[in-house]
């Protein structure tokens, strides 16, 4: 690109030849990224509810797609992602944040939804147990996320805790940039009512999570 600013035409050619040979040895990171995006666009097929637009990235996903060589995201970039996501949190209009923990448990167990072979007319699950420990009787839980056993017992059910819990489920990146957890509300995976049910599963003193 810098070649264009040099006026001497013959020098341009010489430099271009030099660059072409070294091009094979060095391709910039952003070029690989662009090329990978192009490949994926050509090599995935839209199926069912999963269109090719799913390959696109918002600012957070673009910033969080980091290789080990990229290293962790800078503090300021993380803060910017958290700020942008926090600003887009949407709380229920009725002001109520606690739903039904029994329904929440069913949603936490279900892993269906949003896959190309899933029926889009059926509600999606949250699949919490895939990554978290919740109710103690469920032994088949994953460990990608922290254990949430006793979540409400430890924190209480104050308005502030309810708001945090709803917000965390709605959009975890409002609090932790590049979190592995899906942005259930922000990305339209779960309905507002489903998120309320999950808040109840985590906070309700009657929920098995807090027994």
């Amino acid at each position: 690109m810098k070649i264009m600013s040099i006026s001497n035409k013959s020098l341009d050619v010489l430099l271009a030849v030099g660059l072409l040979t070294s091009c094979v040895a060095f391709v910039s990171d952003s070029e690989y990224r662009a090329q990978a995006m192009k490949l994926m666009g050509a090599d995935f097929k839209a199926r069912g509810q999963a269109g090719l637009d799913r390959l696109n990235q918002d600012e957070a996903n673009a910033a969080c797609s980091r290789t080990p060589a990229d290293g962790p995201l800078s503090k300021s970039a993380s803060a910017a992602i958290e700020k942008a996501n926090f600003a887009r949190l949407k709380y229920p209009a009725d002001g109520k944040l606690l739903g039904d923990w029994r329904e929440g448990e069913r949603i936490a167990q279900s892993g269906v939804g949003k896959q190309f072979n899933d029926d889009p007319s059926r509600p999606a699950g949250a699949n919490c147990y895939a990554c978290h420990q919740l109710a103690p009787k469920e032994l088949s839980f994953g460990t990608i996320g922290p254990s949430l056993l006793g979540f409400g017992k430890l924190r209480g059910t104050s308005r502030a805790i309810q708001e945090y819990t709803f917000g965390k489920l709605y959009n975890p990146q409002a609090y932790t940039a590049c979190s592995n957890m899906p942005r259930f509300g922000h990305n339209g995976i779960l309905t507002e009512a489903q998120i309320k049910d999950l808040v109840a599963l985590l906070l309700d003193p009657e929920s098995p999570v807090n027994k």
Partner: peptide, 25 residues
């Protein structure tokens, strides 16, 4: 690049599940 590419409604990449040791689903 593809391995670390996050996208879709769940913001998942291959790395979401396969870049830390000792984890399970």
């Amino acid at each position: 690049k593809i391995f670390f590419h996050r996208g879709g409604p769940h913001d998942f990449s291959c790395a979401t599940c396969h870049s830390e040791s000792g984890k399970r689903i």
